[in-house]
């Protein structure tokens, strides 16, 4: 479904990604783990189109999307839940959801979609008239996921969904991710919480200073000595 070939990316003169290869197949949950500054967020921003590639290709369902602008990629079925949630703070929760479906034109289906999000995240229904910026961190994370789902993505990119959340909320967020996968959504999950991420993933990639250091299925990576030492602190 998604195929990244020798992708390079720069911030000014600093190269953040050095020829990354990565694949996500239909229906898979793939985890991308690695330390701070390894390039995880840069890779996700490259896939969603927020950050330009300086080399390599990105293919989505067979089409080369390397040079497509981000809004076009949303229309093709790629949605990203950005790091730090990135609400439209002063706008109401419901407006954030409605804007999540900005690329869609089927009004009735969008309204039904919003109802479905409220069923999945009842707290959002309760707060639907409040400015998104006044929600707690966990509620904002749910809204960020719900907003991304409103575009009916075939591929969901999740960037650090557990960051800054209390442990009980982290568990809840990971349960939501599992449910999404069970519902058939293809997911690429970036996490510093490597243990939890690899635990629910079909496959995983370990990114180190802009290069893929290791890849394999989730359980194998969890058992790998190198991974355990470097990222799990065991």
């Amino acid at each position: 479904m998604l195929r990244v070939d020798s992708l390079s990316s720069h911030y000014g003169r600093i190269q953040a990604l050095h020829g990354v290869d990565l694949e996500v197949r239909e229906g898979e949950l793939v985890a991308l783990v690695g330390g701070n500054g390894a390039g995880k967020t840069t890779l996700l921003r490259g896939i969603s189109g927020l950050h330009p590639a300086s080399g390599g290709t990105i293919r989505f369902e067979g089409r080369d999307i390397t040079r497509l602008a981000a809004p076009r990629r949303v229309r093709m079925g790629i949605a990203q839940v950005p790091e730090g949630r990135q609400m439209f703070g002063p706008l109401a929760v419901e407006d954030n959801l409605r804007l999540g479906a900005y690329a869609r034109r089927d009004r009735a289906a969008v309204a039904a979609g919003i109802e479905r999000m409220y069923d999945t995240f009842p707290i959002l229904r309760e707060k639907r008239r409040q400015p998104a910026g006044t929600l707690s961190g966990g509620q904002q994370q749910m809204l960020a996921i719900a907003r991304a789902l409103m575009s009916k993505p075939r591929l969901l990119l999740l960037d650090e969904p557990s960051m800054g959340l209390a442990p009980v909320l982290v568990t809840e967020i990971f349960n939501i991710i599992k449910e999404l996968k069970a519902g058939g959504t293809t997911i690429l999950l970036v996490e510093q919480n490597a243990y939890a991420a690899l635990g629910i993933a079909d496959r995983g990639y370990v990114l180190e200073t802009g290069r893929i250091a290791l890849t394999g299925n989730g359980a194998d990576l969890l058992a790998d000595d190198q991974v355990r030492q470097a990222y799990l602190g065991i």
């Binding site: 809004p71 407006d95 804007l99 575009s151």
Partner: peptide, 20 residues
Amino acid sequence: GKAILAASYNRDAAQLVGIN
């Protein structure tokens, strides 16, 4: 109108929901 506001509040997030 809301999309214009959204783009002013958060440019990245606006692009990620498909706002040009």
